[in-house]
Amino acid sequence: MASDLHRPPRCAGCGITLHNEDQRKPGYVPASSLSKEGAVCQRCFRIKNYNEASSVTVNQDEFLKLLGGIAGTDSLVVHIVDLFDFQGSLISGLQRFVGHNPVLLVVNKIDLLPPVTNWNRLRNWVQKQAREEGLKVADVVLCSARRNIGFDRVVEAVNDHRKGRDVYVVGATNVGKSTLINRLISDYSDLKRELTVSRYPGTTLDAVHIPLDDGKSIVDTPGIVYDWRMSEIIPRKDLAALLPDKPLKPMTYQLNPGQTLFFGALARFDFIEGERQSFTAQVSGGLTIHRTKLERADELYAQHRGEMLTPPSREDLDSFPTWTRHRLRIPPNAEQDVFVSGLGWIQVNGKTGAVVDVHAPKGIKVMLRDSIL
């Protein structure tokens, strides 16, 4: 009996251990509710009372444990990715966890691209990128949660591929997962019923099962935190400068070899070898780009980091990861982007090839990919 008295309180909705320390972590409740009988966590409360799912995050190891149970189910897996950070938000190795279950790939934030974008070409690009990451998808749907573009098609695709099964919704942080779940709740769910819970075997994490009218569920999984995304390591106050909320305004620079572009104090792009050519930066309009000579770049950074070169601020840079240099070789006639996860990409416009160096915080994903535009 004594052990029961000291057992941590658990959510009456999903069974997770309750706490009042950090609103962003699973199981949060206000301190005033912590000791109440029948208390529910913030996420369950919002689903039950407002038909609204809140974003809950876990680290990569915890998320992989959570995914481990999906292959044994008969379900539709809806994977939401961020078009602005496609390679950064795609769940690596998802295929081995979903088994034979179909995957619907929902690509959010298409409102950031120009209205003249060829959407069929973009859909083909998405399918090719997913294949290269080892992910087989049953369908691709393009949408914008912010602008409510394409969500009817998302709901339609879920209906087409669900075939009476549960729907598991998975995604990284800040990709629009909660917005989609909220829409699915409003379209499919009768929330007069109590929340139901299903815990995966062998884990202490809980996925919230939101009941559907046909007796199946939408399964809201926590958002996975990937440390290779710039948006995960930048101070929260600087996110507005990093993450675009308006259509991207491309900035094109004619560069000679030996010239450098600074993206605040977040990254640096050096044109090392090649003929004079243009590079187009597709980054947030809130981010200031500075051009200088490569021979002056180290001195400029040392003198102006955190002041003229910002974000982050000088005091935040003290705890920021040190930069790592990535050398990338762009072959002639290759239509490629230099992708920096969470920051955006730099489109290589020349046809003669180039050698570039990208300096970015240690651990941030930097790579060459086929041009998205």
Rank of each mutant, 00 (worst) to 15 (best):
R296C: 09
S319N: 08
N49A: 04
L191R: 05
Y188L: 08
S54M: 13
Q347A: 11
I330P: 00
F63I: 01
V29L: 02
K237N: 09
K109P: 11
D370P: 07
R276C: 12
E132S: 05
F263V: 07
A172D: 08
W323Q: 14
R24P: 12
N148H: 11
I185S: 03
N108I: 06
N59R: 10
L66G: 11
L5Y: 14
R162G: 07
V107K: 02
R276N: 09
P361C: 00
F262H: 03
K36Y: 06
Q23S: 11
A354Y: 02
I224F: 07
R96N: 15
E194T: 06
G27R: 00
V155G: 02
N49P: 06
I181T: 03
G274Q: 02
I110S: 05
V225N: 10
V81Q: 08
V126D: 13
D370I: 00
R153V: 12
V169N: 05
D82I: 09
G38W: 00
L328V: 00
D214N: 05
I210W: 06
E299I: 11
M367S: 13
D187F: 12
L248Q: 00
T204Q: 13
G150T: 03
V169Q: 04
V170K: 04
L135C: 06
Q87E: 15
Y50I: 07
T352E: 05
V356R: 02
R10F: 06
I70H: 12
R165M: 06
A138C: 01
H290I: 11
V154H: 01
E21T: 09
R7Y: 08
V348H: 02
D206S: 15
L184Y: 03
K246M: 11
K249G: 12
N174W: 12
L83I: 08
P321E: 00
R43D: 07
S198K: 12
N108P: 04
L83E: 12
Q60A: 14
I110Y: 09
H304T: 12
T292M: 09
V56S: 15
V103L: 06
K36E: 11
D166F: 01
D139C: 01
A172G: 10
E335F: 07
S54P: 11
F45L: 13
S178T: 02
G342S: 05
V338R: 03
A39K: 00
V283W: 04
H100C: 14
H304L: 15
D139M: 08
G13V: 00
P257Q: 04
L64W: 15
C41M: 00
G274A: 02
L5D: 14
T117R: 07
G69L: 15
H19D: 02
P250Q: 01
S32R: 11
N49Q: 10
K249Y: 10
L343C: 06
P332A: 00
V167M: 04
I110M: 07
L343V: 10
V126W: 09
L113K: 04
S198H: 15
D214K: 01
H6P: 12
